[in-house]
Computed example of a mutant assay.
Amino acid sequence: MGRVGWVLWALFIVAIPLFLVTASVTWAFNSPGLYNNGFEKYSISRISGITDRDLRQVSSELRHYFNSGEEPLDVRTRIFGVEQDLFNDREIAHMKDVKQLVRGVYVLALVSGVYLALMVAAGFALQRRQFVGPLARGFLWGGGLTLVLLVIFGVAALVGFDSVFLKFHQLSFANDLWQLDPRTDYLVRIFPQDFWFDATMWVAVRAIGGALLLTVVGSAYLVHQRYAGWQNAFHALKEAARPDSK
Rank of each mutant, 00 (worst) to 15 (best):
V188G: 12
V205K: 04
F87T: 03
G38S: 14
Q225L: 11
V111N: 04
D176F: 02
E83Q: 11
I16D: 02
V114K: 00
V25I: 15
L135M: 10
L8P: 07
I152P: 05
L73E: 06
L116F: 00
S59N: 03
R3D: 06
V188Y: 07
F197E: 08
V14M: 09
P72T: 00
V82H: 12
L150K: 08
V205C: 06
P134M: 07
Q130P: 06
R128P: 08
W6S: 12
K99A: 07
V203E: 04
L214I: 02
S43N: 15
N36S: 14
P243A: 09
G33T: 11
L11W: 08
A207C: 03
S245H: 15
F80Q: 01
L180R: 04
Q130I: 00
A240D: 15
Q225S: 07
R76H: 09
W9D: 01
F234N: 13
Q84T: 12
T77V: 06
V223Y: 11
A233S: 10
S45F: 10
L110S: 11
A122C: 08
P32E: 09
Q179A: 11
D244H: 14
A28Q: 07
Y186W: 05
G2P: 13
Y35P: 12
Y65F: 15
T200K: 03
V102F: 12
R46H: 12
V151N: 04
K167W: 14
T22P: 06
T77Y: 02
D162I: 00
N88D: 15
V164W: 01
A122K: 08
D52V: 06
V188Q: 09
G113K: 00
S31E: 07
W141L: 15
V21S: 08
D85V: 07
S172Q: 02
V159D: 09
F139S: 02
D54E: 15
Q57S: 13
W6F: 13
P192A: 04
I50G: 07
L140G: 04
W27D: 07
V25S: 11
S112N: 03
R63S: 05
A93P: 07
R128M: 06
V223N: 04
H64E: 14
F139Q: 06
V4N: 01
N37Y: 02
E83T: 06
R76M: 08
L150I: 13
D74R: 11
G2I: 03
A122D: 06
A241C: 11
